[in-house]
Amino acid sequence: MYRLKEAVVVYRNQNKTIVQLGTKKFTIVDEFSQFYKYITNGNLIDINTKKKTEKEYVNFLKKENLITESVKYVDDRFIKNEYFFEDINKHYKKSTYQDSIKKKHVIIIGLGGLGTIILQNLVAMGVMEFTLVDKDKVDFSNLNRQLYFTPKDINNSKVEVVQKYLFKYDSKINVNISKTFITDETIDEIFFGKEFDLIVNAADTPTNIVSIIAKRAISLDIPFITGGVGLRTGHFTNILSENKKIANLIKYQENNDRGKPMIGSISSTNMIIGSIMANEILNFWTNNKQCEQSRINYLNFENYHLECEEL
């Protein structure tokens, strides 16, 4: 049996019934409130009904993705996710997004202001296996924008601190760590013998870090995303899932070398870019149609204007 999706809103306006889900809004002429009564009476919806009028209602609800299988979600930390995935699901069958995300293995390179925010978002989404790469120890200067770290963690390894935190948060999360500083010579030891579903670059050193990792994404055929935060702007790519698109990024990086990283950085701008990158990842995992473009996006933090450059 089926029911309306949790986020569907239904109301009357004169002789019309209005049905809304997110930005989608449907206005149905319903003189005697028959359709309104059918979908608001609290009963489950039988998609195999033999009644002609009800069959028409069901066909409309299925076509517009307004109904879903009536299932009871487990009351755990993912229950809000399940309702979200239910609402964005492009099919009336039960969403499998949460189960799929739990099986992902993501490597995040760089646990600074950007990397820790992306990590926290992916943990909350339900990713259950990570490989975290960062050679640095926690410094007082990290505490203004980087999650997970406290003054008690100063001089301790970043990846070890995060690994311990995530074990306490959810002991089922598998966290692999590496203190390797990535160069052309050391990149092999990080990727050798491992399988990843996504590579996230949130590091800014060495200056050719993006090219080093992008080349490895091409050789292993793994989707890739990278980003960074400056003083007045932040940048991020969409998910690059085809080798040609990643190769275009390498050429772009070689022609647009921005030199050494800036020292100044603030929490709010890192939060913005990190969350956008996490949302790009979510969209990639939940959209059936992958992005056909390869681009790098620049967000102006003063006016929130977004500029996109094709790669």
Score class of each variant (00 low, 15 high):
74 V>P: 02
196 F>E: 01
287 N>R: 14
5 K>A: 09
214 A>I: 06
302 E>Q: 10
295 R>P: 02
283 N>L: 12
209 I>D: 02
250 I>L: 07
66 L>I: 03
173 I>L: 00
125 M>E: 04
225 I>S: 03
178 S>R: 00
276 I>M: 09
286 T>V: 14
62 K>R: 14
196 F>K: 02
53 T>A: 15
7 A>D: 13
131 T>L: 01
155 N>L: 14
205 T>L: 02
238 N>H: 04
184 D>F: 12
147 L>W: 05
225 I>A: 03
85 F>I: 01
260 K>R: 15
53 T>G: 12
302 E>I: 15
109 I>H: 12
21 L>A: 07
156 N>G: 11
162 V>P: 00
201 N>H: 03
84 F>G: 04
180 T>P: 05
209 I>P: 01
63 K>C: 05
245 K>R: 10
93 K>G: 08
77 R>E: 04
311 L>D: 07
138 V>S: 04
144 N>M: 03
84 F>E: 03
62 K>Y: 09
307 E>W: 08
135 K>L: 12
67 I>P: 01
33 S>M: 13
116 T>L: 06
118 I>C: 05
292 E>H: 05
207 T>D: 04
68 T>D: 00
169 Y>G: 06
65 N>I: 06
267 S>N: 13
119 L>A: 02
44 L>K: 14
18 I>C: 08
285 W>N: 13
221 D>M: 04
113 G>V: 02
164 K>Q: 14
267 S>E: 13
107 I>V: 14
267 S>Y: 08
128 M>N: 11
53 T>I: 15
164 K>I: 06
210 V>P: 03
181 F>L: 11
132 L>E: 00
48 N>Y: 15
49 T>G: 08
271 M>A: 15
38 Y>E: 11
278 A>K: 11
282 L>Q: 09
246 I>W: 10
119 L>Y: 00
237 T>R: 10
277 M>G: 13
39 I>H: 13
178 S>T: 00
25 K>Q: 09
251 K>I: 06
179 K>C: 08
162 V>H: 00
51 K>L: 15
292 E>R: 06
186 T>C: 06
143 L>I: 11
122 L>H: 02
239 I>K: 12
246 I>D: 07
74 V>Y: 01
232 R>A: 15
2 Y>G: 05
227 G>W: 01
70 S>K: 02
76 D>C: 00
206 P>L: 00
103 K>W: 09
143 L>N: 05
72 K>F: 00
264 G>I: 15
275 S>C: 12
197 D>V: 05
225 I>L: 05
13 N>Q: 11
128 M>F: 04
79 I>P: 00
221 D>P: 05
255 N>Q: 14
228 G>D: 03
237 T>E: 03
84 F>V: 07
181 F>Y: 14
228 G>T: 06
37 K>P: 10
230 G>H: 04
1 M>Y: 05
1 M>T: 07
46 D>F: 05
95 S>A: 14
278 A>I: 10
228 G>I: 06
36 Y>W: 08
101 I>V: 11
61 L>Y: 03
74 V>H: 01
213 I>Y: 02
66 L>W: 00
250 I>F: 07
76 D>H: 00
195 E>D: 10
113 G>T: 01
244 K>T: 09
245 K>W: 07
35 F>T: 13
265 S>F: 10
143 L>H: 03
45 I>V: 11
217 A>E: 02
21 L>S: 06
240 L>Q: 09
47 I>P: 13
308 C>W: 09
12 R>G: 10
163 Q>P: 06
176 N>T: 02
